[in-house]
Nucleic acid binder design. Structure first.
Lengths: 139, 139
DNA sequence: GCCACTTTGCAACCTTGTTGCAATTAACAT
DNA sequence: ATGTTAATTGCAACAAGGTTGCAAAGTGGC
């Protein structure tokens, strides 16, 4: 993705495209699966951790990326391919491989709906399946 | 639950019922919703943190309790009411209230199945719905 | 009672995430 | 352009939660 495209997407989502945010969004929009703050630190070695942390928070607040918990001990993120216009219907499942510790985005696997009790109001869903991925199973 | 019942359940699950484990299992089997290691520390003030941590790990390893991630920053646990004989079908959903920060067990809400891609093997599912609970909504 | 093995308590530590604050940069009116 | 204000960034320090090493205490078999 070009810097220009990044800026446009961010502006449409109400995020001011600062240098760190562009750097962050450009880097993560090229990743196919999930990543942690630590992963991003390694990817962008010369950028400060707390700046990246704040960039991720901003992007997450404006729904350009999603945060999810996979039990690995660190919060994972993935880019929202609907550029901030995600409805609950469009959330995809994630798969955590217990062997290689990678968390996949299952783009084609939409989160199935559950029935909430009376009076409960859902905002988002964290759905992570754990097991062995196809790569590790082959090996 | 009596100490005797706790011991029986643990033994059936292949867990040697030591003092800390009995204390832990008895305490948590009386809780209706989820709890963290920290919650348990507060509940059993005179017991060491790492002993509780190890007891929870042992109980979890033998499926007497389940661990789940709700994005609160600490791992939550809940007792398995099938006493270690939980199949994937029986896993219930959890609900994290963004206001009161409580994580409910939705006992009557079974985790809906998702379709995995070819070659992926599921072992367990972490399904946490986030939103506002009925108590907080009323207020 | 003695020995091997397990469990427990304590302290120390690691990792991840988070904040305070000063320095820098950007936005904008004059 | 310049000054004024607000937002962002980098650094360092910190907090919380989880985890481990190790010695002491407990358990069980003989």
């Amino acid at each position: 993705m070009t810097v220009k495209e990044c800026c446009e997407i961010m502006e449409r989502a109400g995020v001011k495209p600062t240098s760190i945010r562009i750097l962050t969004y450009k880097a993560v929009s090229e990743l196919h699966d999930t990543f942690s703050l630590g992963d991003l630190e390694n990817l962008l070695e010369d950028v400060d951790k707390s700046s990246l942390f704040r960039a991720l928070r901003t992007l997450s607040d404006h729904h350009l990326i999603h945060a999810l918990e996979d039990g690995s001990g660190s919060v994972k993120y993935c880019v929202c391919h609907n550029h901030g216009a995600c409805t609950e219907e469009e959330h995809h499942c994630h798969f955590f491989c217990e062997q290689c510790k990678k968390t996949y985005c299952l783009e084609d696997c939409v989160v199935p709906k559950a029935n909430l009790p009376q009076g409960f109001e859902a905002h988002e869903v964290n759905y992570v399946i754990k097991g062995i991925c196809s790569n590790c199973k082959k090996a």
